[in-house]
Design a protein around this nucleic acid. Structure first.
Lengths: 165, 165
DNA sequence: TTGTATGCAAAGATTTTGCAGCATC
DNA sequence: GATGCTGCAAAATCTTTGCATACAA
């Protein structure tokens, strides 16, 4: 929670720097986003935000998430199918393991891979700015193996977390 | 070219196996796709195909590329922005370096990374089925550094290749 | 013939934008 | 007041699908 407040403060500061306003909607949206799980779609954020303030519109969520992305406080992901998904940022970088069955998203980070890719890029005359590394497969722990053939339709919204941090 | 013909033959065989027809459109589309560069969008494939047979429609390209993807002869990519992009498949797996300036796409493959990710996934109780690894940055060689501020609008279609193989 | 394939246009799904009214400075 | 924000609805994109017609087996 302290973490959430920290984010809100950073967001407020960013808005102020840009001469923009920290409105109640923006606060509610950011709160919903940071307070909940991770990797949310716009509609998921909208739903959460509406739990707190029923009148919020999709466009506002859309624009607010863009602001968060611009400010660097959120990262826009385009995983395989589906549309855009946002992830709280600011922590250190990490990559993803995505379960093809239950849709769970596990985060990971690996120094070996990180260093090695820098090396590879360098060898090919390329300067690295960012990267994405996603591994698809099946998670073998927790309540997935292999997804109680029913509940979710496929890669859904709710995203878990694990590993690192 | 021998390679293109090889692909066409494989495609024809796949269609036959499925009880589908190897029509002139499908041949032209596959030819255009395999004969040209890599990582093409549907519209790019359409344009190339129309150079050979002006009457081809978008829907036919759309459906043909789906067939190629299903057959495993092409891979559907969803790089950052933009929409879907297809890449000729059948070779061994590889990943991508994408230049943020000129849009060039460089392919690479690295045993160290490949093995390491298997390891990481295993440690997290995850079985790997596939993965994507994309590095974004700037290419420092050839005619890019840094893109003669004009020509291309941004990440475009034409894709180069390099490294490995 | 008989079942596919094609091309066009319409339908869907998402993502963006325009605007009138509201809120904040 | 002036400028920025919101919510709604319309617009713009992209991706899929329905269908009548054209083909291939």
């Amino acid at each position: 929670m302290s973490d959430v407040n920290e984010r809100l403060k950073q967001f407020a500061r960013y808005l102020d720097d840009q001469g923009l306003r920290y409105t109640s909607q923006r606060r509610v949206i950011a709160e919903a986003f940071y307070g909940s799980g991770k990797h949310l779609s716009l509609n998921e954020v909208l739903e959460l935000a509406r739990d707190k303030q029923g009148s919020i519109g999709f466009a506002t969520v859309y624009r607010t998430m863009k602001l968060l992305a611009e400010s660097g406080l959120a990262i826009e992901h385009r995983f395989d199918e589906d549309g855009v998904r946002y992830e709280p940022a600011g922590h250190d970088h990490h990559d993803h393991l995505i379960c093809n069955r239950c849709g769970r998203i596990i985060e990971f980070e690996d120094e070996v891979v990180e260093r090695r890719q820098e090396q590879v890029a360098k060898e090919l005359g390329f300067r690295v700015a960012s990267h994405r590394h996603e591994i698809y497969g099946e998670c073998l722990r927790d309540p997935c193996p292999y997804e109680s053939q029913s509940s979710q339709g496929r890669v859904t919204g709710v995203a878990d977390t694990a590993a690192r941090n």
